[in-house]
Every structure is written in structure tokens, then in C-alpha cells.
Amino acid sequence: MKVVSRFYRLSDAGTRTVTLTVDGTPITAQERDSLAAALLAHSAKASRRTTRLDTPRTAYCMMGVCFDCLVEVDGHANVQACMTQVREGMVVRLQSGLPEMRGRND
């Protein structure tokens, strides 16, 4: 048994879709999805690896409590995917361990 997504999407005529990219790959989501819902609908795989033990995680509580759904959104690290609504053209990067420290010269 290979798990593609752990969820069925109930067909919902009339709902518009948006396209975002996850680590460069385009995925479609429904316009009212939270980013966490869009990621869960798209894949059964981890959306994050932890900072201490490098273990896989996906969104857990879906209501802003647990912070397991942290991703990078449009260049901002540690965004709660379950508290973020999808937008057309959103650029998402999955986090693995601690985010890189990027120096600024200004």
C-alpha cells in the first residue's frame, strides 16, 4: 500500500483553484485552503524535519497550537501553514532542521 495523500477531497463544484510552488514544484489548491490543508491534500510525506533530531513531521493540530506545520513562505521562515491561507503564486519551501542564517550587508 502506497499512501499518496491521507485524505480524499470531496468534489466541490464551483470552488476556484490556485497554484503555488512547493520547493519549486507547482501544486494546485482550493482557494479557501489553509496552506497546511493544501500540503496534506497534495502529499502524505513530511512537510518539515525537526531541528533537534531531524525527524519527519506534518501539520498536526490544524488550529495554530502545535507549530508542527512550520514552513517557509515567500522567503519568511517559520510560518504556521495552518494559519496561512493559500494565494496564487505563493512560494513555499519546506524546512529541514534549523533555517540557514543569511547575512545582510546593508
Binding site: S5, R6, F7, Y8, R32, D33, A37
Partner: peptide
């Protein structure tokens, strides 16, 4: 919120 239903749950 997303009409997502648990699969084989």
C-alpha cells in the same frame, strides 16, 4: 474548511 476526508483512518 477544505472538504478533506480521512482516507483509511
Amino acid at each position: 474548511t477544505s472538504t478533506l476526508l480521512p482516507r483509511d483512518a
